[in-house]
């Protein structure tokens, strides 16, 4: 039954792809695309740096112009975390037994390093509009800190409920800020705060706020994936 269902899904997807590629109306003909007529030029235009207010052009595109896409990306990550949680069980009570004790230096040194890692990750998240980096790498570093503690301490169990609450709150706030843009300005996720001087910490309007939320959401999602992999059900 499962295999049949999978086959139907697979074939349906194939049909959809063929239909989409066969569509001659919405796709320009091969070789006839006018590359000078793309939005990329407008994004990279120097005037737009002052329009968005972000010193980092990648951040300006990812959050400023393509905020809606980013919301989708974060949702993809959320769904994959949910998939991992489904694949394993929900009733996680016991820490997975790693059989081998971590050595002393790793166990005690990782606590020192964890502090540095968290500060670095928060620095990267909050400076996403000024330096390379931003929400996604910062969130990944938070999660790697959690992974380090899991590997370094065989008794450690992170507060996974806190992570879930954090993830939910961050996701909801992202959407709420988008809706505020719809109300206060004209469209979803539009910037409604003055963008300030380029290069200052408090600049670029809603970009830093959204990037902080993305960072917290990504970090807590990946941390919950790590937790799911390293815990198991209480064997009855």
């Amino acid at each position: 039954m499962k295999k049949l269902f999978g086959l139907i899904l697979f074939m349906g997807l194939g049909v959809l792809i063929i239909l989409a590629l066969n569509n001659t109306i919405s796709f320009p003909k091969f070789g006839s695309v006018d590359l000078s007529d793309r939005v990329a030029d407008a994004y990279l235009d120097n005037d737009n740096v002052s329009e968005v207010g972000s010193a980092n052009i990648v951040t300006a595109i990812v959050v400023g112009y393509r905020g809606f896409d980013t919301l989708g990306e974060v949702t993809v990550l959320f769904i994959s975390a949910l998939g991992v949680a489904f694949l394993f069980s929900f009733k996680k009570e016991k820490r997975l037994d790693l059989k081998f004790k971590p050595n002393f230096m790793l166990k005690h040194g990782s606590k020192l390093l964890f502090g540095i890692m968290l500060v670095v990750s928060l620095y990267i998240i909050t400076h996403g509009h000024l330096t390379p980096g931003g929400g996604f790498p910062g969130g990944a570093i938070i999660a790697s800190g959690v992974l380090l503690l899991y590997l370094a301490d065989d008794k450690f169990r992170s507060n996974i409920k806190g992570f879930k609450v954090l993830e939910g709150v961050a996701g909801s706030l992202f959407v709420i800020i988008g809706l505020l843009g719809l109300i206060l300005a004209t469209s979803f996720l539009e910037n409604f705060i003055a963008s300030g001087t380029v290069g200052q910490l408090l600049s670029a309007g809603i970009i830093p706020i959204i990037y902080v939320l993305i960072g917290l959401k990504v970090g807590s999602e990946i941390a919950s994936v790590v937790d799911n992999f390293l815990t198991e059900e209480e064997s009855a």
């Binding site: 050595n103 230096m105 040194g109 990782s110 020192l112 390093l113 540095i116 670095v120």
Partner: peptide
């Protein structure tokens, strides 16, 4: 300074972990 501190703490820890 941050990079030096991080490397001096983390490098011996990493190598002793591999050694064990």
């Amino acid at each position: 300074i941050i990079i030096i501190v991080f490397i001096v703490i983390s490098n011996p820890i990493g190598s002793s972990t591999i050694a064990k």
